[in-house]
Design a binder for these strands. Sequence first.
DNA 1: CGTATCATTGACGTCGGTCAATTCGTGTGG
DNA 2: CCACACGAATTGACCGACGTCAATGATACG
Lengths: 261, 261
Amino acid sequence: MKNWLSEAPTVPANCGECPVRHLTVCQPLKAERLEIVQNFKNGDRVLPAGSQLYQPGATCPELYNLLDGWVSLYRVLESGRCQILGFALPGSFLGFQPDLHGPMLHGAECITDVAVCVVGRRTFPALIERPRGLAVRLAQMLSQDAIYAHDNLTNIGARQARARVAHLLLELYLRLNGGEFKTANQEVGIPLTQIHLADALGLTSVYISVTLRQLREEGLLSFRKRRLQILDPVGLAEVAEYDGEPAVQDISPLDRRLAGG
Amino acid sequence: MKNWLSEAPTVPANCGECPVRHLTVCQPLKAERLEIVQNFKNGDRVLPAGSQLYQPGATCPELYNLLDGWVSLYRVLESGRCQILGFALPGSFLGFQPDLHGPMLHGAECITDVAVCVVGRRTFPALIERPRGLAVRLAQMLSQDAIYAHDNLTNIGARQARARVAHLLLELYLRLNGGEFKTANQEVGIPLTQIHLADALGLTSVYISVTLRQLREEGLLSFRKRRLQILDPVGLAEVAEYDGEPAVQDISPLDRRLAGG
DNA sequence: CGTATCATTGACGTCGGTCAATTCGTGTGG
DNA sequence: CCACACGAATTGACCGACGTCAATGATACG
């Protein structure tokens, strides 16, 4: 697993040059206050595809802003089965957990070559209390993480395989495009193998294969050679049981049971 | 669905009397600073079992500290299928999301009679920036929410039905007992129907029924009439593929694939 | 005592897993 | 430039876990 359709990731000279600042936890900081976090930084780091940012069960002395590349967050059961919890894209803040200095509850593996901005764990509490708005921004991002997890949970728990695959690819497409469809049939690069999809969706890679073939034969999407093409957005959203903005529920789960739905 | 083995929930006279203060978002506040949040409070509220704290897709003008009772967080697909995202216990902070004033991305239904402490959404940003440590505590709790979601995700995505049921009940038992086993065969009240379990685990209620019978016949646990009894903690943890503290992984998901595991 | 909900059980069907063989694609070394 | 190696993807045969449907029982509340 090598480079991802691009040269090696590069790192910014300083926080002012950070290419993903508006996506990161630093977002609320005005330019002149950036040097506060700059002083807390332990520099940047580049990791090759396939390497581990941190491992489940081990302690990790740092926290990371993902600057470039894709990272998978995962857990492994004793049975050997691997569950991918989600995919982190540039701007993600990685490694925070309630017990800040305890062993990591999940692992982080670089899917592509990756660049991260490093912050020491020991100094982090001092940093987070300093600039106004930083802690709230962190809360906002963690809340978004929980929502992504809820999306995945709903996807795995409540949808059939076809819908799961369709939904995940649609969601990734939208995340990469800022939530909108660009030109029709536009291709977008997604550096995942069918094994990644399987581990993320609670399926096997062979069933991913047949499902992708079905979706392709139905003219909904094409995902080959790590390039995704949405051929029929409307049809795909239907198959995916996608609810962009959930409609107001005038009927509760309890009532639905009572109604005999 | 009525009362939960106890009289109606009561609310504290003031924050100093709050029975779950050490579990809530207010935890870091010293007693003398509690009046800051007290002044932001919109009072308390009691809701009957079966009612909705807020509904998916609707706006909600408040945030809630859960003081007493059980709440289920859920989503509903157009297909009608309901996915329970998790169960909130006293101390949980409910309703926060990245778009603070946007429509709720999930619903919250009272499983039992419930008491909540209410905070207005409009005034919340001012509150959260005020007392030192409050925003960080919020981040900590949201991070814990993400971890619970990851637990459920792993449970649904990577375990068989038997293990899923065992794992969920074991986890609830431990949450209620502060993470430890008390006296052997102790009973604990869990106000969930088999339908709740099914919606939380991505299974059907009839399969929950047969699975519970199996687990009972194997002498692992008993869950009848909303009372759970752990009969064989060790055996149950085994069936549940439970990893309390995950072991350090000396082998990455990538390596495992390469090793042909 | 009547009714609504929850729980249980059995027969049957299917979605998705397992196993195994083959092909494809890409990077490596001669 | 070609041969090789190795992981990723594809395909088919078979099977089992779990869902669906339907009927019956057990509880609790009015």
